[in-house]
């Protein structure tokens, strides 16, 4: 939808685009790109400015040989994948519900956006107080006569399947993706669907061939952001996870803050690995889902 500016006669206008892009790009290239390179360089134990001039693959070898690393990687993939999938599906369902007219729609739509600005740490604390074995839900289960000791309530935080971590992401990201889908749906209106209905399409067909392609670009972007976040976040797995195995980010942070500085290259290698894996998976996901949408 981009408008094309008529070619300008002034010579400085030829540099207009690079000039306007320069501030943002230089910040990103210097701060982000430069930082990434520094991390890479230090993962090889190489940083002449502080007198480290030897290049070594030891840190990378060390992390790949650590059993805990692979367990953590698997756990992190599980968390990111399940959290993204669940919140995407729930978000679409919520948006489809909330687009309809009903009493109090304005208030409820506002409520739906309410937890977008809530920091994840607070969400994590809320989930902990809600889902722990002596949390509010366990107490309700006790009231209902379903359990009489906390130990009978299933372990839902700091647990094996990372339920608590996933629940926090789903709680927050459903609203994030849902708001984007809702905005798309409302700006498009129901004309296309009505047209499809008049041509005899059933509910599922209308959703699959009309609504879904319309909302797909927004869903795609949002779910990528959610996956990348869930894959690399620290606070939530730190508060709601288990001591072993822990999420990759927590493992990397533990190595980074160890009183043995020799572990820092390993921390750098692990963080880069997180970055690599999440970028790779996102590229894969984009290719596949673009293809699916086209079909």
């Amino acid at each position: 939808m981009s408008a094309l500016q008529p070619r300008s006669r002034f010579t400085w206008e030829r540099f207009r685009i690079p000039l306007l892009l320069a501030p943002a790009l230089s910040v990103i290239l210097l701060l982000f790109g430069g930082g990434l390179l520094l991390t890479l360089s230090q993962s090889f134990g190489y940083l002449p400015i502080i007198g480290k001039t030897e290049f070594s693959l030891a840190a990378w070898q060390a992390i790949f040989q650590r059993g805990e690393f692979w367990q953590s990687l698997f756990l992190t993939l599980w968390i990111g994948g399940v959290a993204t999938l669940t919140s995407t599906i729930l978000a679409i369902l919520c948006a489809l519900t909330l687009r309809k007219q009903f009493r109090g729609k304005k208030a409820i739509t506002f409520l739906f956006q309410l937890n977008i600005p809530i920091p994840h740490i607070v969400g994590a604390i809320g989930i902990l107080l809600l889902f722990s074995q002596s949390g509010l839900i366990a107490r309700l289960a006790n009231l209902a006569g379903m359990i009489n000791d906390p130990a009978q309530f299933p372990a839902l935080v700091n647990d094996r399947y990372a339920f608590g971590i996933i629940a926090e992401y789903v709680w927050k990201e459903t609203c994030f993706i849902g708001t984007i889908v809702l905005a798309t749906l409302q700006s498009v209106g129901e004309d296309y669907e009505n047209a499809a209905a008049s041509l005899g399409a059933n509910r599922w067909q209308r959703f699959r061939y009309v609504t879904l392609p319309l909302i797909m670009p927004g869903v795609l972007t949002a779910s990528i952001l959610v996956f990348a976040f869930a894959f690399g976040a620290f606070e939530i797995p730190f508060l709601l996870g288990r001591r072993f195995p822990s999420a990759l980010s927590v493992l990397a942070w533990r190595s980074y803050t160890d009183t043995d500085l020799a572990l820092r290259p390993e921390a750098m290698a692990m963080s880069l690995f997180i970055a690599l894996v999440s970028t790779g998976l996102i590229l894969l996901y984009m290719t596949i889902s673009r293809k699916l949408v086209r079909e």
Partner: peptide
């Protein structure tokens, strides 16, 4: 390029910068 920082966890970048 502008999207990249939303995908790469920021601490991977900041760990590298920290020493400087």
């Amino acid at each position: 390029l502008i999207l990249a920082p939303t995908i790469v966890p920021a601490f991977a970048v900041v760990m590298g910068i920290h020493v400087l």
